[in-house]
Write a protein that binds this DNA or RNA. Sequence first.
DNA 1: CCCGGTTAATTGTATAGACAATTAAAAGAT
DNA 2: ATCTTTTAATTGTCTATACAATTAACCGGG
Lengths: 245, 245
Amino acid sequence: MTAPAPKELPRYAAIRRDLESAILSGRWPPGHKIPSEHALVARYGCARMTVNKALSALAASGLIVRHRRAGSFVATPSTEESILEIHDIAGEAQGAGKPYRFELRARAVRKATATDAARLQVKAGTAVLALSSIHHVAGAPYAAEDRLVNLAGVPDARAMDFSDTPPGSWLLEKMPWSRARHRISAINADAAIARSLKIARGTACLMVERETWLQDLPITQVRLIYPGERHHLLAYFSPAGRSRR
Amino acid sequence: MTAPAPKELPRYAAIRRDLESAILSGRWPPGHKIPSEHALVARYGCARMTVNKALSALAASGLIVRHRRAGSFVATPSTEESILEIHDIAGEAQGAGKPYRFELRARAVRKATATDAARLQVKAGTAVLALSSIHHVAGAPYAAEDRLVNLAGVPDARAMDFSDTPPGSWLLEKMPWSRARHRISAINADAAIARSLKIARGTACLMVERETWLQDLPITQVRLIYPGERHHLLAYFSPAGRSRR
DNA sequence: CCCGGTTAATTGTATAGACAATTAAAAGAT
DNA sequence: ATCTTTTAATTGTCTATACAATTAACCGGG
């Protein structure tokens, strides 16, 4: 026997894969116009129904948006999706019209220590950006954020001064991402957290740790601590991810 | 002008809606064989590509599974999906081979009090089943569960004795569901929780409240309390719910 | 300059037909 | 009875074509 066949994909799946990788790699940024079905038919030499199937699938998955006469475009990763679904209480608060303020406490570029490396899942020594900040809503501390950014994945972040822009928003707009993992736990506030959030020591806090990847490249790891009981996360689910619209 | 047109769906979408409603209503339970494309073509009087589009969409969304030569079947809501994704630490522990035990503390059928009604989102006076239990793993309390079941939605639950079967598993197997909402928060253990879980008062705990609906009918509301720090929830996401498989 | 109508690019849906791949079930052989 | 082969039901993919719907862009008249 020879090696197992590379298992070629059906044509519509191959087209989908090509487009998806162009988008996920960042080669086609949000807003980029995707070739028309006509053009793709010419490029791949297949029937329009075939490219239509690929494009429809991408649209159904939310990666692209399509408009008659105008064309198809890479979707802008909108804040309506799962990121916010799972943890944006701040958005809620802002939506409710309360004043929001971002305070950067610390900013450092360094070679990843062993701890950093474990958190971000990169090799020790990789250049990382470490940010510590507090989110304030209605004048009171709302959440403490502790973030690592992989400068190998997001070189532009090195030049960014995050004293006004929350890095979360900036990254969300700037970078596509393909995968995220959240870990949610409850912790008792230690002295440092209590001081930052102006709560009593021992108060139960919600800790959300999120790692974000682009393909297999770690982009950022963030640890958000919310003063407990005052806030909660909401997540909506349908079985098997059906009908998200 | 007359009333706004009822906005008729395209044919493939109408077929999809019909099948989906048969499944979600429970009329076609998990495992039920769906008419073949051939049969649906005859029923709806359209081309096979059209019913194929409807069925492919249902398959992509995970509502049905399809096998060549065998046919298409209503999928069994498998424990692989978002429910467990979001909160199954127990599964992890069991997977690791540790002994699991379920202890029913209280079971009562009653007419919904005002509190019950608010929790389950039903009218006060509706018949509900209230269950309190403790999940033990490796001999130690693992989580406290406090559940309400809407007997109008799940009449079979009235006859069920849950002293051995965790109601979560039973419901998951028995009932289809179409929507769930999780609320996750951190609380300090009060005296009762501390006693149930054998932890110190004030320990940070993770509280997961889940409401599950079938269409617009509330099925169950459950409050799970995990002793903090020892455990955490994991959730994986892709933007816009893309490619879950 | 603005407003209206016209044109045409692009996507959305549907059709009829073809062949491939999978595999449950039937038929046949031992 | 057990194993093997054949058959056929069902889904998977692809094609070529057609027409509908949407709407950006163009054009002409005021």
